[in-house]
Nucleic acid binder design. Structure first.
Lengths: 183, 183
DNA sequence: CAATTAAGCGGAGCATGTCTCCGTTTCACT
DNA sequence: AGTGAAACGGAGACATGCTCCGCTTAATTG
């Protein structure tokens, strides 16, 4: 790739990050181009679809997921506290950008989504936490990872749409934890 | 109201019902006007915002909610089966139109949403079911109606976005039921 | 049954946003 | 420096939301 193309690409990702943070994932793409000081054509050449740009943005914070699992698992207390710490982190990661939770979770099931690798990272992370719970014998029988991911995605989406504070999200996560752990 | 205005209003609601069913709640409003054989101006006079039209549409099926509560409570089996029957009905009602679940659930908390009366109907219905569970002594302490509604709304939203079949939704509702009922 | 009038109609048209096409510029290599 | 291809950028076609205002028509009244 030519040096100027590389520069533009990086600048676009950087600017898109800001714009999406400010105005949500549905922000006008021409605005991204304008602020990056390039024409719309340049933006669309680098990122043919809105999703392609989303994917590029998310690549930066997907890297944090593994670390957050470890952090949550280091929480003081029993399995329930660890699980809830992870659930809170999961929701927090998904709600970093307005609109992201719904999109990422929607692509959980489908193989051909451009966001597939991203949501897979989340699913894998959650699976590892559930496996830990199973090892400690506290996981209910028949609890499926995909279902839990969708439930958490649903909570995150509701939190996003209603601008819920963490203390409003917590009781929902409590219910899910109760449903996932043995009594 | 003049007779022709009345006629147009009814026709618009009827057509909007079709269009929203086919293309989701974000379908072009001009398409609704076109199919109804009126100008866009007429549509926007009757329904100044998209939400106003949504509200009018939903008024028709909001009437079914109370009946569905009774139907679910008449399900054979114990409290768990009744609760799950209601949860399934709740999700089915919310996913009748693409995009509806997210919008209705988002307006649960806020007082000034045009959809307030609609989502209140759902919240009241769910509250009555939870009250029934409490009467039978099977409801966990500290389970809040609003949280359960949001969880169900989240499930419905995920079902909507991923076009999930009822059998894919059921396990998520199982987890919520486990979290809501005493062990 | 005209005549009157205001409620209602409808579409031209502006605003915003997406995305493409293609003439022009710039980089990289010789 | 010269050359060719890669990259640029912006005009503009197209889609959608929404408004304004001149025209039509239903309802009322003498």
């Amino acid at each position: 790739m030519r040096a100027d193309a590389q520069r533009n690409r990086e600048r676009l990702i950087e600017v898109a990050h800001e714009v999406f943070k400010e105005r949500g994932l549905d922000a006008p793409l021409d605005e991204v181009a304008r602020r990056a000081g390039v024409g719309p054509g340049t933006l669309y050449r680098h990122f043919p679809t809105r999703e392609a740009l989303h994917e590029a943005i998310m690549a930066t914070w997907i890297e944090e997921v593994a670390g957050q699992v470890e952090k949550a698992m280091a929480t003081e207390g029993g399995c329930r506290e660890k699980l809830l710490a992870w659930f809170e982190e999961y929701v927090a990661l998904l709600t970093r950008h307005q609109g992201a939770a719904a999109k990422i979770t929607a692509s959980l099931g489908c193989q051909d989504s451009p966001l597939r690798t991203k949501c897979q990272t989340y699913a894998d992370a959650n699976e590892s936490v559930l496996a830990e719970m199973a090892d400690h014998g506290v996981l209910r029988e028949g609890v499926d990872n995909l279902d839990v991911c969708r439930l958490l995605g649903g909570v995150a989406t509701m939190a996003d749409h209603s601008s819920l504070a963490p203390e409003d999200v917590r009781p929902m996560l409590d219910v899910i934890a109760n449903g996932v752990l043995k009594a």
